[in-house]
Simulated scan of single mutants.
Amino acid sequence: MDLYIYYQVKDADAAPLQAAVVSMQAELAAQHGVTGQLKRRPEAKDGMQTWMEVYAATPDGFAAALGAAAEQAGLFAWIAGARHTEVFTDLAPCA
């Protein structure tokens, strides 16, 4: 299963949030073998940026570990509003 987590951040909070997310992703990679990606929309709107974390091919239990890691890393201090998670799975190939 692939996880896509998106949220908004104020322009002024982008630098400290980026540092926290990069550190959290490095720790998750070391502990769970899942390399995360950090992306953002190219444009900001009303001083807000939209960011996305992507975690592909995650093992069972990773979503809970990610939630705990986000809490421990203090991400919510810089995120404006909710942190939304979308889950996608691969389609089975046609025979």
Rank of each mutant, 00 (worst) to 15 (best):
I79L: 10
M24Y: 00
L75V: 05
L28Y: 03
Q72G: 01
A56N: 09
G61V: 04
A57S: 15
A80K: 10
I79E: 06
Q8I: 00
R83H: 12
A12E: 08
L91M: 11
A68S: 14
E71Q: 11
V22Q: 11
P16A: 06
G61H: 05
L3W: 06
Q72H: 07
V54E: 07
L66D: 13
T85L: 11
A44K: 12
G33P: 01
V21D: 02
G33I: 03
V22C: 02
T58M: 04
T89K: 10
M48H: 13
Y7V: 03
D13E: 07
T85E: 09
A12L: 01
W78M: 03
A57F: 07
Q25K: 11
A65I: 06
K39L: 15
A65Y: 06
A44N: 09
Q18C: 06
G61N: 01
Q49L: 14
L75E: 02
D60R: 11
V87G: 02
E71P: 00
W78F: 15
Y4P: 03
Y4V: 12
A82I: 02
G47D: 02
T89W: 06
E71R: 06
T50Q: 15
L3S: 03
A65V: 05
T89G: 10
Q8P: 00
Q31Y: 00
A63E: 15
I5G: 04
F62L: 07
R40T: 04
V54I: 14
M52Q: 14
L17H: 00
A15E: 15
Q37M: 10
Y55Q: 06
A56P: 05
A92K: 13
K10V: 00
K10F: 01
L17E: 01
F62G: 05
P59L: 05
L28N: 01
D60N: 08
E86T: 09
M1C: 01
G33E: 02
R41E: 10
A63L: 15
A95W: 08
K45H: 10
A80S: 13
Q37I: 01
A57Y: 09
F76D: 11
A56Y: 08
E27T: 14
H84D: 10
D2G: 02
A19M: 00
I79N: 07
V34K: 00
A26D: 11
E43M: 07
D90T: 13
A20V: 04
A15Q: 13
M48P: 01
A44S: 15
A44G: 11
Y55M: 05
W51L: 14
T89Q: 13
M1K: 07
V87K: 14
P59I: 06
Q49M: 10
L91G: 08
V87T: 15
W78S: 08
Q31W: 01
A44Q: 12
L28T: 02
R41K: 12
A70D: 02
A70T: 05
A82L: 08
K39M: 14
L75P: 01
V54D: 03
L75H: 02
